[in-house]
Amino acid sequence: MQSRRLAVRLTALVVAVAAVLGGPLVPGVDLAPPAPAPVSGNVGQGSVAVEAVAFGETGYRLERGAHGSGAYYLVAPDAFVEVASVDGRPMLVYEVRIADLGYARSTTAFPSEGAVGTVRISLGKDALSPERIAAGRYRAEVRVLARANERDRVLDERTVEIEVRG
């Protein structure tokens, strides 16, 4: 048999055999295990000991989207949480709240059990309708919370100024 034909047939055979091996006909072989949940464990339960929290005093902006995309996006410096110990699966929440716009944006981190060190939280981007932005500056409350067992503990908070650009 020519080598090209052999190569093609072998390839097809390997693919088919692997698929059947992983299937229900061959018990005990799991070639495609269930995907692990993005956050495992008992989310929101546990405790976290925090040594220090740091987030910027400046650098908060409402920036108009590029390329004529029109909407405004809240840009904030990252928050850093120095974690001493983690028990269970608590949450760390970084939140920016602009009362005058009735708008709040938060991003949550899930430090894993036994983790020690710095957790960095970047505020996710989402779009605000340009019609809502009337002023050139806004005041915002910035907070970092530890959330566990359905209780929020404010680790640090600060009022900052948000500059509107574009």
Partner: peptide, 28 residues
């Protein structure tokens, strides 16, 4: 039918691989 004899994920991947392989053979 594929899920009866094979792993569904690998069957999907396999179908994709075979169409790519077939495309190569035909291009040849």
């Amino acid at each position: 039918g594929l899920a009866l004899v094979a792993d569904l994920r690998l069957a999907v991947v396999g179908l994709w691989c075979l169409s790519l392989l077939g495309c190569f053979v035909l291009l040849g």
